[in-house]
Amino acid sequence: MDRREISFGLLIAVLLALTLSPFASQWPDGLEKVAEDKGFIEKGEVESSFVSPIPDYAWPGIKNKKLATSIAGVFGTILLFGMGCGLAKLLKRNVY
């Protein structure tokens, strides 16, 4: 992949996170829905053993929930891009 193709791929991912993530469905996902229907959802209401820096995909300190989600999404997307590239580079080197 050349620089142009990499930028294009990353741009698509960033744009998806930036523009669509605030409008994602708020309905429970498959597992949550089953847990609600089958009466074990309260089992998941346990105190977390640690504090996540960006809980529930909302950038802390931003009042506008849609904007907070958008920023968290873009941050995560770029983070994963970096981690994916970095890890692949590291693992590839191990061969030699």
Binding site: M1, A13, K33, T69, M83
Partner: peptide, 24 residues
């Protein structure tokens, strides 16, 4: 490619789409 795929899948996993009966 591993960077782009990881970024894309992460972004796409945020995009819950409605399914049926109040489930996404």
């Amino acid at each position: 490619l591993m960077g782009v795929v990881s970024a894309f899948v992460f972004a796409a996993q945020m995009l819950n789409f409605p399914v049926i009966g109040g489930t996404s």
